[in-house]
Simulated assay, not measured.
Amino acid sequence: MSPERRYAEEAGVLMAGLGLPPAAGKLFGWLMICEPAAQTSGQLVEQLGLSKGSVSTNMRLLENVGMVRRVPAPGRRGHAYQVAPDTMMRVAADPTQFRRFRELMDRGVTLAGGEDASRADRLRVTRDFYAFLERELPKLVARFRSEYPSKGENDD
């Protein structure tokens, strides 16, 4: 097994620990290190030994959460997949996911009897944590971007 393939396998294990399917982690890991940066489904099947169905399903999942994007496949019909250099920053800076969790916890607090209800403790703490993330992560990403030296990479 090549070092690149081993890296993809390691990413699959790590991301499975975060609740993603191992195949999604392998695909993401591969797209972080592969050359060329854009890979077609066929290339991903060949390089990672995954089925076409697994590649299709997991690329759709990664695309839906904003971790990969479709790009034209140079010299071919169809598309390829790619990870932008700033993918994780864009995902982290999007307050939508945190707002949804905060709103869900808010509804739970109401359901549990309100702010002062003892069974709402877990919900309040979790809600407040997501409110904190919703408020602070975009600021941290902006700070990182302002401090990170630009190397002329295409971050689109």
Rank of each mutant, 00 (worst) to 15 (best):
G25N: 08
A80C: 05
M67N: 04
V68H: 01
T126S: 08
V45K: 03
L31S: 02
V71M: 02
M88K: 00
Y81Q: 05
K26Y: 05
L14I: 13
S56K: 07
T40I: 00
P95C: 04
V109S: 00
A131R: 02
S54V: 05
A11K: 06
G19C: 01
F28C: 12
E147F: 07
F28T: 06
E46Y: 11
L20R: 11
A73Q: 08
S56Q: 07
D116K: 11
A80N: 03
A117W: 05
P95S: 13
S118C: 11
P22S: 14
G114L: 02
F144M: 14
Q82M: 15
R69P: 01
V68R: 00
E9C: 10
C34M: 07
G114D: 02
E134I: 07
R77E: 13
G25S: 09
D121I: 12
V109F: 04
S41M: 13
G66N: 06
Q43N: 04
R127I: 02
N64H: 14
Q47K: 15
E103S: 03
V45M: 07
A80L: 01
G78H: 03
G49C: 08
V141G: 09
D121E: 15
G12D: 03
M32K: 09
M105C: 15
D128N: 10
A112D: 15
R135S: 12
R6L: 11
R102A: 15
L50N: 02
R124C: 10
T110P: 02
L31M: 08
A11C: 15
E46H: 12
R119G: 03
F129Y: 12
L44Q: 00
G113C: 03
F98S: 13
M32N: 09
L20F: 15
G25A: 09
R124P: 08
S41A: 14
G78P: 00
M89Y: 06
D86T: 08
D116Y: 06
A120C: 03
R99N: 07
Q82A: 11
Y148G: 01
A120W: 03
A23C: 05
P36A: 04
